[in-house]
Amino acid sequence: MTDHRRVAPASRAVAPADGLGSGAIESPSIRLDLTIARLLAVGTYISVTLLAIGVVILVAAGRSPLEADIPAFDVARVPADLASLRPEGPLWLGLLVVLAMPSARVAASLIGYLRSGERTMAIVATAILAVVAIGVVVGVALGAGPES
């Protein structure tokens, strides 16, 4: 016997964990959870794909991952490296996506909290982004370390 029951869309298929009942409209916090989940999943696949492309180019070029020097990070060179199919291009871009994902998640949370009027959480999200920005400033200020 054929089952003609309709399957609920993915966003509705997740049972709300807030005790509002299966027929309830998704609360802002659940919507935010799902939005961030999608962002992280897409970002992970993009970054892993970029890193895999870089590894394939590296291997195809007959180069070893254990080369003598760590290539210097220069964001301005990434487009040129990508265009000329040098492994550094997709590798650095992949790493940048990896490093940016957690901050992108916080930025998405910030937007979500601002939209739902949660001022305190919006301040927390802004403060986290500020701390990450301080990390960038500190890294630039300290300059190259002994491994570079």
């Binding site: 992280l40 590894v55 991952p65 760590i70 990070f73 992949g94 957690p102 998640r105 701390v131 990390g135």
Partner: peptide, 28 residues
Amino acid sequence: IGITASASAIIYLLRGGLDPFVSAPIAI
């Protein structure tokens, strides 16, 4: 963990301590 690790990884990146050739195969 993501934001914790990224905050310090940025420092490693900017100080030249992040090796893309090794990071990629290991991360994959």
